[in-house]
């Protein structure tokens, strides 16, 4: 296996530093929200995790398109890697959202468009992994995975739109103020800075994790081929 690239080591260090700073900002720099209290701090990493989930879904669909075009194994490995990271982070997103909603909306769960869409995204990711598990031929596994990643990605905005046509109570913190959304708050400059920094940090986390996971995938591929060679 090729040695760990220098750039990856640097990326690890930068990501770890950014993450430490982001945690510091969230707990010590951002002010306590006047109405919701401490639980509002969950918001920063909650949105950032959702952002990583979206990024990985996008990455998986993109890798799928490139894989279908070129047929290079590399892009199949990138696709699985992205999906796996997406599952972990959408899970964080859903659970933290639920924990936030309990004191603020007075319920663990509602069928709000974002919650619904995130849940369905998680199910699509899970289905993607189950599809791959059922196929032995690596070439076909890659093709089917790519097709499903593309189809799934395209369905997500449609799912969101269909869920949105229902009434929503999820706060839209960025952009237009929507009357009636409970748990709405105006971000002070410090909150906004913390929020933006969290997004940046999690983007780095995503790239770093993806890189590591792709390297792991390539190692697994290498081992698999060696096994086949020895078995033959």
């Amino acid at each position: 296996m090729e040695p760990k690239p220098r750039l990856l080591t640097i990326l690890d260090a930068v990501t770890a530093a950014l993450f430490a700073i982001a945690v510091g900002l969230v707990f010590f720099y951002a002010p306590t929200e006047a109405v919701m209290g401490q639980v509002q701090r969950v918001f920063y990493f909650h949105v950032a995790a959702g952002w990583v989930g979206m990024l990985s879904f996008l990455a998986a669909a993109f890798a799928g398109i490139v894989y279908l075009r070129t047929g290079r194994r590399h892009w199949d490995i990138v696709g699985v890697a992205a999906v796996e990271i997406g599952i972990a982070f959408i899970f964080i997103n859903i659970v933290t959202g639920s924990i936030w909603a309990r004191p603020i909306w007075n319920t663990w769960w509602t069928w709000d468009p974002r919650l619904t869409t995130a849940t369905i995204m998680e199910l699509i990711y899970a289905a993607y992994l189950m599809l791959r598990q059922g196929i032995e031929d690596p070439d076909r596994r890659g093709r089917f995975g790519a097709v499903y990643a593309i189809v799934g990605f395209i369905s997500v905005p449609l799912t969101f739109m269909s869920a949105r046509l229902f009434r929503t109570i999820h706060p839209i913190v960025i952009g237009s103020n929507q009357p009636g959304a409970e748990g709405q708050f105006d971000m002070t400059p410090r909150m906004l800075q913390t929020f933006m920094f969290s997004l940046l940090t999690f983007t780095f986390v995503f790239v770093d994790l993806l890189w590591h996971r792709v390297r792991l995938g390539k190692l697994a591929d290498h081992v698999e081929q060696l096994k086949l060679k020895l078995a033959a």
Partner: peptide, 20 residues
Amino acid sequence: VQTRTRDILLPILLFPVAIP
């Protein structure tokens, strides 16, 4: 139908995508 688990796989693949 081209997978090992073909009888159970279709609804799992189809329903989340067909929700809209």
